[in-house]
Amino acid sequence: MQMTYAEAIRDAMRVELKRDPKVYLAGEDIGVFGGCFGVTAGLLDEFGPKRIVDTPISENFIVGHAVGSSACGLRPIVEIMFNDFIAVCFDEMCNQAAKVRYMFGGKADVGMVLRMPIGAGIGAAAQHSQSLEGLLTHIPGLISVIPSTPADAKGLLISAIRDDNPVIFYEHKQMYGMPGEVPEGDYTIPIGKADIKREGSDVTIVTWSWMVQKSLAAAEKLAAEGINAEVLDPRTLIPLDKEAILKSVAKTGKLVIVHEEVKTSGFGGEIAAIVSEEGFDYLDAPIKRVAAPDTPIPFSPALEQAYIPSEEKIIEAVKALF
């Protein structure tokens, strides 16, 4: 059925709240208020305050408590209101959630999900707009899921909730209102499987989250100019479907990576390194990256629009390879 990205995320949580009594939600203003972007609207009425838990403004507690409750068998889905706030509770993800299983010799499951909205474009400036998805990929023990469509959001979130590892689930705020066809009821997508959003033969664009939508639009314009781009969405950064990326590059011989993170130390650098190491012979042109510039996110709409990677920049990067 047709639903928006936000509705698909809510639907995934409803499916799991109904299926498993150990699943609960916790976060700031997720109850009566329905979440800062309305994603959890109505869930309090449907499931009650035991399952939909409003917390104080206490990010260390929100994430840290989920480590403890999941190690004791619950399945928390916690929300951090903006991805930027991960800086406040970085220890709880980096040193606790990620490492508990390993440090304890495999004797603890930390089956928690941390949902966070990413992305610029709403005039929220430097502390409420970042895309920091690369940051936590550097910490072994965490899974990073980053869907670009309503259907992917639902299928991947259900898989994330059922996973026995800590999963970070990145939602792009520009896509919350985006509609799409979403399967009803129990629907899962395996974690670690890329999806080719558009088949092509001339160049591979590896991209995720909102930039998939921009890349698809760019690909249509490129097609009109005779360049047939393949758009590959890894959907999860950790684990990364390397095979799918290498296979696509083997077919096209060219690679452009597009992400909204800043360029330096963005996850695109990792993908470029993998393809250089394991697929160098497939390449007949240098790898290109389209990313946000290495600046904080500005407030002024005039500056913010210049900050966000655009269709034009994607098209320009692709054309430079021909």
Partner: peptide, 24 residues
């Protein structure tokens, strides 16, 4: 639930365990 090398990281984890006790 573990010793912890990060001083002060244990509060939220133990409180989460207490939350699980109450929840269950």
């Amino acid at each position: 639930l573990g010793a912890n090398g990060i001083l002060g990281a244990g509060y939220a984890i133990a409180t989460g365990a207490a939350f699980a006790c109450q929840y269950n």
